[in-house]
Structure formats: structure tokens, C-alpha cells
């Protein structure tokens, strides 16, 4: 029972930090942590099918798509 309380605290704290922070790259990385913690919560609810699907899609593919868009949107770099 204590494990579910600890993982719930990590998830909620991570979600609050994602929304408040100003740097976009930090927000994308912490969003990946929130998705992984929700996959562990699915396992604690005795649902291993859903946990595998959420880990593969949420932590893998959605984060990759966000990083691709971040590179296309932030165009200003220092001239060399």
C-alpha cells in the first residue's frame, strides 16, 4: 500500500512541476517521468496489458514526437 502512495506523490509533483516551469525542454523530460509513473500505477492496479502499452507509447513515442516538434519550432540559434 505504501508503494502506491509514493508513486502517486511522484506523479502529482511531477505534473505540477511540468506546468509551472518556464523552460520547454525541461517540461518535455519531466512529462516522460509522469508517463512512466502512470505505467507503474497501472501495474499496481493489476493490469499488465495496459502497463506495457502505456510504457511503449507514452514514454517512447510521444516524447520522441515532442522533441521533434521542439526542434522545428525553436529556430533561433547563435551564429557561428
Amino acid at each position: 500500500m505504501f508503494l502506491s502512495v509514493i508513486i502517486a506523490v511522484i506523479m502529482i509533483f511531477g505534473a505540477m512541476w511540468t506546468i509551472v516551469t518556464e523552460d520547454l525542454f525541461k517540461a518535455i523530460v519531466i512529462f516522460a517521468i509522469v508517463s512512466l509513473s502512470s505505467s507503474i500505477m497501472f501495474l499496481l492496479m493489476q493490469a499488465p496489458d495496459v502497463a506495457i502499452t502505456e510504457a511503449a507509447i507514452g514514454s517512447g513515442i510521444t516524447t520522441a514526437l515532442f522533441i521533434f516538434t521542439y526542434k522545428k519550432v525553436e529556430e533561433e540559434k547563435d551564429e557561428r
Binding site: D49, I52, T53, I61
Partner: peptide, 24 residues
């Protein structure tokens, strides 16, 4: 994962996601 979808957890949907990361 998709061949053993009816005996252990997994199935077709995460298998498609995992195969697509190979092409990624």
C-alpha cells in the same frame, strides 16, 4: 509480443509501437 498475445500480457497494440521504433 504479438505472437504470445493470447498467453501472456501484451498483444498487438504495443507490438506495433515497438516495431515502429525499429524504423525510427
Amino acid at each position: 509480443t504479438f505472437i504470445n498475445g493470447h498467453l501472456s500480457p501484451g498483444g498487438g497494440f504495443p507490438a506495433g509501437a515497438i516495431i515502429s521504433t525499429a524504423i525510427l
